[in-house]
Simulated assay, not measured.
Amino acid sequence: MSEIEREAPAILSEADRVVPDWPAPPAIRAVATTRRMPGSSAPPFDAFNLGARCGDDPAAVAANRVALVEALQLPSRPCWLRQVHGVDVFDADLGGPGEEGAADAAVSRSGRSVLAILTADCLPILFCSADGAAFAAAHAGWRGLAAGVVEATIARLGVPPAELLVWLGPAIGARSYEVGEEVHAAFVDADAGAAEAFAATRPGHWHCDLYALARRRLAAAGVGKVYGGGFDTYADARFYSYRRDRQTGRFATLIWRA
């Protein structure tokens, strides 16, 4: 038995992972990993980096992904997307794309898939139907949110918005996320009310609340049951943060059906 296999049970510690606080159906399982899980990645990716495109040793990433499946007793290997800050949605029931499919969200209705979103400040969003028959995961940085990844995911999932439950996972907090004109304009030019998610800091710069922007887009789409939020990956050492560290790993937010 390898060192990873011997250490894997420790990954199940509540202190080393985040379990969504939402009233999802009993069959729905979800978790956000942290860098504190025992893994194979060396600094600055230590220790449980799951991102294959951030400069880490590919062998270490592969070992961490194997440990993830074993520790969480996942029904299959996760559907790893090649995220590009867009709005394309992958139907995981048609076959997992591995690192080959460029998409920023995935949906499943068969229950055989494990959906995963990799982040290090961007907002991971989980969706499930009230009966647990359908679920989805989306990668929502500011570009994806402004472009409509939330709306695209809801449309592809095919569940009436009023019947959806949504959880907002660990992302950079507003106090840590200063942005410039490009980000402010991307939202406010299309929706004047989005200005409420920005707080001026200095000329041409604002603190940006990704959670508030996501809730606004979800509400406009007809989704009223939204949970989670309140994290700050920049300030919370449990999580990878690109803005804090630049060269860093990625943690995963996953959803599947038991």
Rank of each mutant, 00 (worst) to 15 (best):
D189L: 13
P38I: 04
G111H: 05
G230D: 10
V179I: 13
A24K: 02
R36H: 15
V89L: 05
H139C: 06
L72Y: 11
A221S: 14
P75S: 08
G229P: 01
R109E: 12
S40T: 06
A92I: 06
D236I: 09
P170N: 03
L165Y: 12
A258K: 07
F198M: 09
E99Y: 14
A47V: 00
E7R: 14
A221K: 01
P75N: 11
V69K: 11
L94M: 12
A134H: 02
W206P: 07
P20H: 05
A200C: 06
Y240Q: 10
T33S: 13
G51Y: 01
D209I: 09
D57V: 09
E178N: 01
A190Q: 12
G39A: 13
Y211C: 03
S113K: 13
A162K: 11
A32R: 00
A133L: 13
G132K: 08
D191H: 13
W167T: 03
A146L: 02
G193I: 04
A258V: 10
R246E: 14
F198P: 11
V61P: 01
S129D: 13
A103H: 04
G224F: 00
N49Q: 05
D57C: 11
P58K: 11
L123M: 14
C54M: 15
A71S: 15
K225H: 15
A252H: 02
L165G: 15
T119E: 13
S2Q: 08
N64M: 09
E99D: 15
R217Y: 01
G228F: 04
P160L: 10
L81P: 03
A67Q: 13
G111L: 11
A140M: 08
D236V: 09
G222E: 04
A92M: 07
D21K: 14
L157S: 08
L164W: 07
H139K: 10
G173A: 06
G180C: 11
G230Q: 05
A60L: 12
H85N: 15
R238I: 11
P38C: 09
G39Y: 10
A171W: 00
R35P: 12
A103D: 07
E100A: 15
D91L: 02
F251N: 15
A221R: 03
L145D: 11
E196V: 14
R143C: 05
L68E: 07
A32P: 04
A63I: 01
F135I: 03
A116D: 12
I117P: 01
Q73V: 10
P20S: 12
E181M: 11
F187D: 10
L254S: 06
A146W: 01
V107N: 10
G101H: 03
D21L: 14
P78E: 09
L168N: 03
Y177F: 15
V149W: 01
A116P: 02
L218V: 04
